[in-house]
Amino acid sequence: GIDPFTGEAIAKFNFNGDTQVEMSFRKGERITLLRQVDENWYEGRIPGTSRQGIFPITYVDVIKRPL
């Protein structure tokens, strides 16, 4: 089901994660935001896939912030 505490964002740019914990994505992908890790990073996942990880806040347009 849908978790009411998650947020939502759209990727503004392609992001290629450097490490296992970073999640790569392509511009235009819809991302579920799980939490804000710190002032620069979100943790999120791509709905319908097993992809999950952290990524820079500046790479996405936030539609709804996670609670």
Results as ranks from 00 to 15, higher is better:
F55P: 01
K12M: 09
L33S: 03
D18T: 15
N16S: 11
R30W: 09
I63N: 04
M23E: 00
D38F: 08
E43M: 12
G53T: 01
Y59D: 03
T49G: 06
I31T: 02
S50G: 12
G28A: 04
G53H: 01
I31P: 00
P47A: 11
N16M: 12
E8N: 07
I57D: 05
I54P: 02
K64M: 07
N14K: 05
R65W: 15
G53Y: 01
Y59S: 09
D61V: 15
G28T: 02
I57F: 06
N16K: 11
K12N: 07
K12F: 04
R26C: 14
D61I: 15
P56V: 03
F15H: 05
V21C: 15
N40F: 14
R65K: 15
I10S: 03
I63P: 05
P66W: 03
K27R: 10
Y42Q: 02
T19K: 13
G7L: 08
D18I: 14
W41K: 05
E22F: 12
A11V: 02
L67Y: 06
M23C: 03
D3S: 13
T58A: 15
T6M: 10
M23A: 02
R26L: 13
V37G: 01
I10D: 02
E22D: 05
Q52G: 06
Q20W: 12
E29P: 00
L33T: 02
I10P: 01
G53L: 01
F15C: 02
T49R: 03
I54Y: 09
T6R: 09
E22K: 10
P4S: 14
W41I: 06
V21R: 14
E22G: 06
S50W: 08
V62L: 06
N14A: 08
E8Q: 10
K12Y: 03
R35G: 07
A9G: 10
I10L: 08
N40D: 12
F15Q: 00
I2Q: 14
F5A: 11
R35D: 03
I54A: 04
Q36G: 04
Q20G: 11
V21D: 14
K27G: 05
S50N: 14
I46Y: 01
Y59I: 05
L67F: 06
Y59T: 08
G44T: 01
N40K: 11
T58K: 12
N16D: 14
V60S: 01
T6L: 10
G1L: 11
M23P: 00
Q52D: 03
G53N: 01
V62I: 10
T49S: 09
I2P: 13
V60K: 00
S50K: 12
K12T: 08
D38R: 08
N40T: 13
Q36H: 07
R26E: 13
Y59F: 11
G28C: 08
G48K: 06
F13M: 13
K27P: 05
S24Y: 04
D18M: 14
I57A: 13
G28N: 06
P66G: 07
I2A: 14
K12L: 12
L34I: 12
K12Q: 06
N14F: 05
T49N: 03
E29D: 06
N14R: 06
Q20M: 12
F5W: 15
P47L: 10
L33G: 04
E8W: 15
G17N: 04
G44W: 02
A9I: 04
R26P: 02
T58E: 13
P66D: 08
D18W: 11
Q52T: 09
G48C: 10
I10M: 07
E22Q: 13
F13D: 10
L34P: 00
D38S: 11
K64R: 10
M23Q: 01
S50D: 12
V37S: 03
G7A: 07
V62Q: 04
G1F: 10
L34C: 08
I63S: 05
T6N: 13
F5R: 10
M23W: 04
R26V: 14
D61G: 05
D3Q: 12
S24W: 06
R51D: 02
I10Y: 07
E8T: 11
G17W: 02
T32N: 07
V60M: 03
K27E: 09
D61Q: 13
F25W: 02
V60R: 00
W41R: 07
R30C: 09
I31A: 00
I63R: 06
F25R: 00
W41L: 07
G44V: 01
E39D: 13
P4E: 13
T58G: 12
Q36M: 10
E43N: 04
E8K: 08
T49W: 02
D18C: 15
F25Q: 00
N40H: 14
V37M: 08
V62N: 03
V60N: 00
R45Y: 13
I46F: 04
G48V: 02
L33Q: 03
K64F: 07
T32A: 08
A9D: 00
I57E: 08
K64T: 08
T19V: 08
A11E: 00
E39C: 15
I46N: 01
V21S: 13
G44M: 01
P66A: 06
G1C: 15
T49Y: 03
V60E: 00
A11N: 00
I2D: 15
T19I: 07
D18E: 15
D61C: 15
P56D: 04
T32S: 08
T6F: 13
R51N: 03
W41S: 07
D18A: 15
V60A: 04
A11F: 04
F5N: 12
L34T: 08
R35W: 09
P56M: 05
F25E: 00
F13T: 09
G28P: 01
Q52P: 01
K64Q: 08
E29L: 02
P56R: 04
F15M: 01
K64N: 08
N14M: 06
S24Q: 05
E39V: 10
L34W: 06
K27W: 05
D3F: 11
